[in-house]
């Protein structure tokens, strides 16, 4: 495996364009956490013409609902949640300048089209590696929607957070490429 590419936030368009589907990365800096309920509130706020609690320009969002932190720890276990549940909200977030997303699983054609338009990048973190990922989190601070508990919008500082570029800024999709390479099902599907 090639050595991972180090990314330091703020994420820039130049960094985004340089990444290719299949690249391993280590992310250091600020990412924002948000999942279903916070996305719903943010898109509702946008529909009402309100501004969002955070300026998402050139930011990365991590789809996560961490488990509670033990005393003395910044965060509990914190692996990615399924990104597809955020698909219906994502084009609007990308319109706000969001440039990177970390999650797991497939994205819709609409999200991929919006990503290409904005040259945004989708990263996958390893689902189920929640304790390992939590060890890269240095701080976690709720910035809005505290009533949502684990689903609150929070600012997180990470150091060498491991992820993989799955959909790059030109729309190349490593889920498709990777699986095609290893698929050995009989072509006629004759079972």
């Amino acid at each position: 495996m090639a050595a991972p590419i180090k990314i330091t936030t703020p994420f820039t368009l130049e960094q985004a364009r340089a990444l290719k589907a299949g690249d391993l990365v280590l992310i250091t800096g600020t990412v924002y956490t948000s999942r279903d309920a916070a996305h719903k509130r943010m898109t509702e706020a946008l529909a009402k013409g309100e501004t969002l609690p955070v300026d998402f320009h050139n930011q990365i969002v991590y789809y996560v609902g961490p488990s509670p932190a033990k005393p003395g720890q910044p965060i509990g276990s914190a692996g990615p949640t399924t990104s597809g549940r955020m698909d219906s909200y994502t084009p609007q977030m990308l319109d706000q300048g969001l440039l990177g997303m970390i999650g797991k699983g497939y994205r819709s054609p609409e999200v991929i089209a919006a990503m290409k338009k904005h040259q945004a990048v989708y990263f996958a973190a390893t689902g189920g590696a929640a304790a390992l990922i939590a060890a890269t989190v240095k701080s976690y601070e709720v910035v809005a929607y505290a009533d949502l508990g684990a689903e609150a919008l929070a600012r997180m500082t990470v150091e060498n957070f491991p992820a993989i570029v799955v959909i790059d800024s030109t729309g190349n999709n490593f889920y498709l490429e990777g699986q095609k390479q290893y698929c050995r099902l009989p072509a006629d599907n004759n079972l």
Partner: peptide, 8 residues
């Protein structure tokens, strides 16, 4: 071919 995390 789905593989670990669906990445092949």
């Amino acid at each position: 071919g789905v593989g670990p995390q669906g990445l092949g």
